[in-house]
Each structure stands twice: as C-alpha cells, then as structure tokens.
C-alpha cells in the first residue's frame, strides 16, 4: 500500500480530481446506455461508436463548415438524434424486444459498421479537437490541480442528468416513455404510440452520447480519432451496470465510482499495477453485481414462469 498517498492530502486530492475527470465522462456515456435500456431493456453496444460519429460531425461542422463550436455541437446532436431514430426504425423495431440475442447481435453489427465507416471517411490519424471550456485550473493545492475542464464536465453530467430526470418525470412524453418501459403491451392498450416513443428514446440517447463524446474529446490531452470511444464504452458500460441499468442517477454514481476505482484505488493499493485499472473496475462491477444482481440503484426484475 502506498501510505504516502494516504498521508499526503495533496496527492490524494490530485488522484480524486483525476478520478472525477474520468468518471464524469463515463457517466455521460453511461447515461445514454441507461436511456436505451430503460426504454427497450436492450444494451446498445454501438452507443460508443454512435457517440464517436456524432463528435466527428461536430468536428466537421466546426472545421469544414465553419460553424461556431457550440453551434456545431448542437447541430451534431440533432443529426445524431435523427440518425439514431432512423436506425431504431429500420434495424431495431422489427425484432421482438424480449429476445435479447438478435438485438445484441444487431447492435454489435452497428458497432462494427459505424466504426468502419468512420475509419473509411476520416482515416485513423488523430486530430486536435477545439477546447470547449476555459483552460487553466479552478482550484490548486500543491500538486492537486482541479482543472476547469473537470468542473465543467462534472457540471455538464449533473445538468444532463437533471434535465433528463425532469423530462422523464414531469413531461407527457416522459410519462409515455416510463409507461412503455414498465409494460409495453399495457401502454399500447391505453393508446401510447409505442414505436415513436422508443424512437424518441433512441434519439435522446444518441444526442446525450454525442454530447458526452464531444466533451470527452474536448479535453486538451485527447485528440479525436475513430477508435477513441471503444475503451470508454467498456468503462461506461461497467458504470451503467454498476449503478443499475435502469437508473439515471445510478449511471452518474456508477461513472464516478468507476472513475475513482480507476485512479484512486489503483494508486492507493500499489500492488494493483496501472494496467489493471480496467480489471479493477471490472472486479468492482463483479462484486457489486453478485451482491446486487441489478446494480446499486436498479430495480430487481421478478421472473414469472
């Protein structure tokens, strides 16, 4: 164990800040996964790639069409929402939502296709992404440096969560959304148009995912390239499963936990080598799921025969 880390508040704080930084990004992608799971009890393995594609659209909007960065981000979010709605209509809706395997296969297929198309169009050389947030640090204590980027990313994650929560619990479309996810057939019987509602869920998730990916690549230490979201997807899905696949706040908490595991835990217990950040996260996930099979905040499903 690294007792330096436990006795030196600076170092500890520095690690916590690093963890917050990563965790907020995981939360942003995890919330997209959760949205789709809530609506369709399906995990979209292509979520990360869709988000990457959206971030590329924002980049193209900024660098080639000359749009102001934030406008480009909004345009990209709208475009990816439209794209996701089209994907839901053509590739997802024909399948029985209770049969998981075909849907998992289709989303894995989408993962390959979207990644490949992005690779064909934009090639694999990384490009610098413009900074969205002011650079510099918001708070500094010795080596502990809380960057504005971290603050804004965290704020964005919380704001998005609050917005989605509001949308789902206070608006009519949110009510329809919750009805569909709780019982598809009954909500059809009371007159909810199930198809468009699910489509709305996909569109919303894609927009959220794009926003997450844009923020992720906007970190000055990163550059945008087609395979950037693959590893994020793994961490984000660990975060989503950790928090409970059908809980929005669970995604935020799960994301922050995975972020802390990745930086803090791995550095406190020095016998866990750095390469094992992912393994540590998976291990925590396993432990949580064995204790609570539907995650920390997820609803347990009762199975009937």
């Amino acid at each position: 164990m690294d007792f330096d880390l436990l006795t030196s508040p600076e170092l500890l704080l520095a690690r916590i800040f690093d963890g917050l930084n990563a965790g907020a990004v995981y939360a942003l992608v995890a919330v997209a996964l959760v949205l789709i799971f809530k609506a369709t009890t399906l995990i979209n393995f292509a979520q990360g790639e869709m988000a990457m594609f959206g971030a590329f659209l924002a980049y193209i909007g900024w660098s080639e069409w000359g749009l102001p960065m934030w406008i480009a981000v909004v345009v990209a979010m709208i475009l990816s929402a439209l794209g996701a709605a089209a994907i839901e209509r053509t590739l997802i809706r024909p399948f029985d939502p209770s049969d998981h395997l075909p849907l998992v296969i289709v989303t894995l297929g989408l993962l390959l296709i979207i990644g490949a198309v992005a690779g064909m169009i934009w090639k694999f050389d990384p490009r610098p992404f413009p900074e969205l947030f002011p650079s510099g640090s918001a708070f500094r204590l010795g080596i502990a440096n809380l960057r504005w980027y971290t603050v804004f990313t965290l704020a964005a994650a919380v704001a998005m969560m609050a917005l989605l929560q509001f949308l789902l619990s206070r608006t009519k479309i949110g009510l329809a959304f919750r009805a569909v996810s709780s019982n598809l057939e009954s909500s059809e019987l009371v007159g909810i148009r199930v198809g468009p509602t699910l489509q709305f869920g996909w569109a919303l998730a894609a927009a959220a995912g794009t926003f997450g990916a844009v923020i992720f690549v906007a970190d000055p230490v990163r550059q945008i390239e087609p395979s950037i979201m693959l590893s994020v997807l793994i961490f984000a899905s660990a975060a989503a499963a950790l928090g409970g696949l059908d809980s929005l706040w669970g995604a935020l908490v799960g994301g922050l936990i995975v972020g802390q595991v990745q930086t803090l835990l791995v550095n406190v217990f020095t016998f866990i080598p750095n390469e094992m950040a992912l393994a540590a996260a998976v291990f925590v996930l396993l432990v949580v799921l064995v204790a609570k099979p539907s995650g920390l905040f997820g609803t347990a499903r009762v199975e009937r025969v």
Binding site: F37, I43, V104, I234, A241, L245, A281, V282, V290, P293
Partner: peptide, 17 residues
Amino acid sequence: RIRGLYLALVTISIAAL
C-alpha cells in the same frame, strides 16, 4: 447471479482485459 444483458456486459469487459 448475474443474468442476461448484465452478464453480456461483464463478460465483454473481461474480454477486453
């Protein structure tokens, strides 16, 4: 204990390890 899509998520993370 872990079922369905949760299991898919855990195992694909293990594959990435």
